[in-house]
Design a protein around this nucleic acid. Sequence first.
DNA 1: TTGAAAGCGCTAACAA
DNA 2: TTGTTAGCGCTTTCAA
Lengths: 341, 341
Amino acid sequence: MSVKVTLKTIAKQLGYSVSTISKALNNSDEISLQTKQKILAYVQDVGYQPNNLAVSLQRQRTMTIGVIVPELVHHFFSRVISGAENFATHAGFKLLISMSNDEWDKERQMTELLTNGYVDGLLVSVAKQTFEKGNFDHFSSLIEHNFPLVFFDRAPYGITVDKVTINDIEGGYIAVKHLIEKGAKKVAILTTPKHISVGADREKGYKKALIEAGLLPDENLIFRIDERAPIREQIELMFKQKALPDAVFAVNEKYAALTLKLAVQQGLNVPDDLMVIGFTDGFISKSTTPSLSTIAQHGFEMGEKAMEILLEKIEDKSALNNPKSVIIPTNLVERESTKKV
Amino acid sequence: MSVKVTLKTIAKQLGYSVSTISKALNNSDEISLQTKQKILAYVQDVGYQPNNLAVSLQRQRTMTIGVIVPELVHHFFSRVISGAENFATHAGFKLLISMSNDEWDKERQMTELLTNGYVDGLLVSVAKQTFEKGNFDHFSSLIEHNFPLVFFDRAPYGITVDKVTINDIEGGYIAVKHLIEKGAKKVAILTTPKHISVGADREKGYKKALIEAGLLPDENLIFRIDERAPIREQIELMFKQKALPDAVFAVNEKYAALTLKLAVQQGLNVPDDLMVIGFTDGFISKSTTPSLSTIAQHGFEMGEKAMEILLEKIEDKSALNNPKSVIIPTNLVERESTKKV
DNA sequence: TTGAAAGCGCTAACAA
DNA sequence: TTGTTAGCGCTTTCAA
């Protein structure tokens, strides 16, 4: 290991003081051009890199933003991250991403790691397990200390926070209304367990649309998927019903794609025998045959907006006591899986 | 903003010295139980959190590992990250992820950010643009300084590095050999531009399998997709050939899914009229109808292995001069898109 | 134009 | 058992 080069070693080598070196490297006009050039040349040569830890510790500013997402596999989260990163880059901030794995403890741990020095602000989409536990202490304490924090998509309940979400109730409503307009009389829903708010909200929208159309919500048509068990088998239950539904609203892309596949396997024609609509507009929905109608969530815009609010909070601490709640509109993307004549 | 609580403020409040507080919090047995309890109680009360920057700066160790991936949307990279994170967690390390967007400059920037204090080691899959530029200086300088660094999937060429990859030539070979065994006589390939090594290697495997079977590689059957232009249209070119191929090897899941969709639209029967095989075993391949045969890349194992090597390097600096190159085996996953009788 | 010194928040060797 | 001191690598005020 070649010995670490620091301001100190450079100073010793060149016979200047540490502060002169520091100023020269920061292009301060206190330092003569001549000296600067000499120092620059040497520094290039030895490949000096400032220690970010020391710089940040001193400056009390890191110019980086942390993002904690439940998981990375979802196309939606990747899109949010891209949007956030896009906005951050233009403002001169970098992004550090971390994954909670939908676990409470990991979320807590990463929140503490990042907020204790690593980043100037944090963007979070809350882990499933955190909702189950109902324990948001790691966030409340940040909020108490006025640490810049903005939630996206999944926000804690019971505490007032800055957040950017979609209106999941409305999204569910739009989806199911579309199915009904296309002639559906018996609409099933594939949703999450009740404690996942996005699933619960989309289910509310589902019921609202049904009731509005004079159709009664039927518990036998509501399938709550437990992801700890095989998903496919749980969806298959739907096809074993005595009287099949004529349309299905799946609250995410994965369930929608699986439903489509199983339907085709059963010899059903989609959309004629069974219409299918999903949620989130990812690559999968476009690439199936028939392609899947869906509710677009606009993850990129969500990421941009969340970052915009976060950076405002960082720049202007006075705005801290005025939590914002922004809703990104959703919209219907009509494709083949609901295209009935 | 409530005033930041540090060891100093605690010490002042409680009338101890900073070092006593520090030792008490680190549960040193130099400190009396009584004092510890008093300090602990106070600290709990005010919600003190140590500044990681300061701790790391002092300890010269962060217990965190950085991962730089080209993009997050690919299921494969998510799997690698999960594997890496799994291994790291067991060893007491945390993960910080960052995205190069396949851009050289962003890769350089994030490499510097992370390696200058933020992390103890780095896992990297090289950006496409970096291959195009052929400039790996940001990595060579790390290697010169013996910074723990391991590459996965996409490694730089021209310099000796630790890396965990798959044998892409073999993967391509297995895929195409399978098509030929199933009766294909005219096999097309959808691949990347030549400078992307994984694409180029899979293409080599493709040619090897053809030649071995006495089939001559035909440039008209090689389609190099440029992702900066619409992908769909480029794949459509294949279907406009006078004589259609009877099988297609797509070097990734996306191209495979798109090919399948276009084939079905053309009224072709897959696999009877056209067989399709992809690369990478993600959710998409399983959920299409017919499901896609593919070459499994075992991303999770790759992540685990890369992290294992990295942690070894971190623990045992003496092993640094013996770069390892590990190959994770690939294997065929046969599904419906090649299931000819 | 350059340097000395203090300090960001913490740890740890040494002294008391 | 507790405190003093030095120092991790850097920035910045103030003095020279």
